[in-house]
Amino acid sequence: MSIRLGINPLTWTNDDLPSLGADTPLEVCLSEGRQAGFVGFELGNKFPRTPDALSRALGAHELALVSGWYSSRLLERSIDEEIAALDDHLQLLKACGATVMVYCEVSRCVHGDQDMPVSRRPVMNDADWQRLTTGLDAVARHMADQGVEMAYHHHMGTVIESQADIERLMASTTQVRLLLDAGHLTYAGGDPVTIAERHADRISHVHCKDIRLAVMDNAINRDKSFLDAVLDGVFTVPGDGGIDFAALFAVLARKGYGKDTERWLVVEAEQDPSVADPLTYATLGYQNLSRLARDAGLIN
């Protein structure tokens, strides 16, 4: 198997709530992530957006580019418009060696609105589903032709959030591959182990965020926004919450995640860095993730 451990800069700075970690330089994120033990980073809003500059920034810390988030609007744009809109991002990932794109449809989304309860997230009708899934297959095919897989990120506050949404997405597409995010799926009331069992052959990327279940229950009961739940500390690093990563990784190992193609396990656990010290949690995340992955046979 060929699996590497990476991290997302959300531990240090937050794209959805830029005030979190606003004064933290990129160099601090990269140096502390490498110090914690990770060998790759996903992109964030402080990263350079040209191949040469990005490669230099990561290379200075012996880090690889894992991937980078893309906000799709296929419910608002044509397929050709979407392909044109994502091209710069696609070429950046491709030039810097990333083989997957974190891809999420954000039309009508509410996860970035601190005043909007996540329960008000958009729900698609049948025509929306047809338009979106047709578009996703076309865009995924275009990306794959250039050597980058679409890793679709189900996400709280968006049109594809729940386990039922994931099942319908998988049933309605043939080219789309899945980013399995244990934290988002648990928050949405789903079971990451079940999705891994059913769709392991289409999982191309894994985000390893844990959930503080009591905080999650409080956020749901009080009908809070996604960002307020983040500020409350709903997410944490693997092994520090209530998700059974041992069971999830056992399924991924049995199903051959990373067996034939290099894959990543990525700590993506947004917290308030003024409350949850980034280096402390990055180190804890690496230690727990590496132990859990090793025990499951995902890494040596």
Rank of each mutant, 00 (worst) to 15 (best):
S71G: 10
S71I: 06
S71A: 14
S72T: 11
R73D: 02
R73W: 04
L75I: 08
E76D: 12
E76F: 02
R77Q: 10
R77S: 08
S78K: 02
I79Y: 06
I79F: 07
I79C: 07
I79N: 04
D80G: 08
D80N: 09
D80E: 15
E81D: 12
E81F: 03
E82K: 03
E82S: 05
E82H: 06
I83A: 05
I83S: 06
A84C: 07
A84W: 10
A84D: 13
A85G: 10
A85L: 08
A85Y: 10
A85M: 09
A85V: 06
L86D: 05
D87R: 14
D87I: 07
D88H: 12
H89T: 15
H89F: 06
L90N: 04
L90R: 08
Q91Y: 05
Q91D: 11
Q91N: 08
Q91W: 05
L92I: 03
L93W: 00
L93E: 00
L93D: 00
L93H: 01
K94M: 09
K94G: 08
K94S: 13
K94L: 09
A95S: 11
C96H: 09
C96P: 11
C96R: 04
C96V: 01
C96A: 07
G97Y: 08
A98P: 00
A98H: 02
A98D: 00
A98W: 00
A98Q: 00
V100P: 00
V100M: 01
V100G: 01
V102T: 15
Y103S: 02
Y103H: 04
Y103T: 08
Y103P: 01
C104N: 10
C104Q: 09
C104M: 10
C104W: 04
E105P: 01
V106I: 15
V106W: 06
S107Y: 04
S107C: 12
R108L: 08
R108I: 09
C109R: 07
C109K: 04
V110R: 00
V110H: 01
V110F: 03
H111K: 05
G112M: 13
D113Y: 04
Q114E: 14
Q114M: 15
Q114D: 12
Q114F: 13
D115K: 15
D115N: 15
M116K: 13
M116P: 03
P117Y: 09
P117H: 10
V118H: 11
S119C: 12
S119D: 14
R120N: 15
P122T: 12
P122D: 01
V123E: 06
V123F: 07
V123C: 10
M124H: 07
N125W: 09
D126E: 15
D126T: 14
A127I: 01
A127L: 12
A127P: 06
D128M: 02
D128A: 02
W129N: 08
W129R: 15
Q130H: 14
Q130D: 14
R131A: 10
L132A: 04
L132Y: 06
T133K: 01
T133Y: 02
T134Y: 03
